[in-house]
Computed example of a mutant assay.
Amino acid sequence: MKNVPLADVDHIDRAVLPIGTDYPPGHVLDWHAHRRAQFLYGATGVMVVDTADGTWTVPPERAVLIPAATRHRVRMLGVSTRSLYIEPDAVPWWPATCTVVDVPPLLRELLLAAVDFEVDYSLSGREGCIAALLLYEIAERAPLPFHVGIPAAADLAKLCREYLAAPDVGVTNAVWAARTAMSERAFTRRFRSETGDSPAVWRTRARLLAAVPLLRTASVSEVGGRLGYASPAAFTAAFTRAFGMPPSRFASSSGVHAGHDGR
């Protein structure tokens, strides 16, 4: 099924409903939740998924597992999606929080085949086997670290979401402490208790996550400079430490040919 609203087919007696959807650049799916669990794969572009607990950046050709009934928002940056909406009872192993995963070639081809199914596809034969195999393949995926947590406290969450929207290397712990009318020491202690990270470590990770969509249209050198890194090599080293792969993996064609891109 393609470009079909989930609400029109959610009642269908199928554990797995595959739907492909094309979105205009910059489209935002505002806060909502699904009764079913969702496997959201970006065949193109970058997705940013927000929940009350955190933000997950989904690079091209990766996917995010969204638990059933989880309120979330998705920002689409040049994305064509292939989604599976799955009855919760069919996936008792589904993660309790959103999880970004890799999508190897077999899983990708199964997804591409599944979105051509009719809504009431046959459970016997090829289509039923593909639906079952999809669940086996998803269960084998290991989580990727493209995530940053959001504090539960409203004032800290506001600081974090504003920073994610416009990362600024000039922001310091003192700036954030002043905005919450706390001493820097008390603020840092409170922030760490809510997130498990110091504010400086959190901001560094947030800037690196912000690099993923920027790399769609700019070189590694340009993105590193915009995010405050002294050199492409320093940016590449920090990105690779955080995510286990260099930024050149996500760079535009112009970016991967830029000097010192870390490949």
Rank of each mutant, 00 (worst) to 15 (best):
I130G: 02
F117P: 05
R241Q: 11
M47N: 07
A177Y: 01
L111H: 06
R216G: 09
V16I: 14
A165I: 06
C129N: 10
G20D: 12
D168V: 01
F250R: 08
R82L: 14
V74D: 01
R241Y: 04
P247E: 07
L135D: 05
V201Q: 09
A63T: 08
V4D: 05
A242L: 09
A166N: 14
N173C: 11
P95K: 07
A63P: 03
G54Y: 08
V46Y: 06
M76A: 10
A139W: 04
A114C: 08
P60R: 09
G196Y: 06
V148D: 03
Y23S: 01
A165P: 06
F243E: 04
A233H: 06
I130Y: 07
R161Q: 11
A90Y: 03
G244T: 05
A238V: 03
A157S: 15
R62W: 00
I19D: 07
D53H: 11
R189V: 12
V169Q: 14
V223I: 07
E61N: 13
C98R: 06
T172D: 04
D50R: 15
A177S: 13
V91M: 03
G26C: 09
D116M: 04
E162I: 00
D120M: 04
T240M: 06
A69T: 10
P104Y: 02
A139I: 05
R73L: 11
R263A: 13
C98L: 13
L40R: 05
C160H: 00
R203M: 14
V64F: 05
T97L: 10
S219D: 02
R75S: 14
G196V: 04
T70L: 11
A131Y: 07
L112V: 02
L133S: 12
A37G: 11
A131W: 12
G45K: 03
P25T: 12
R35Q: 07
W94K: 08
T97R: 14
D50C: 00
D102I: 05
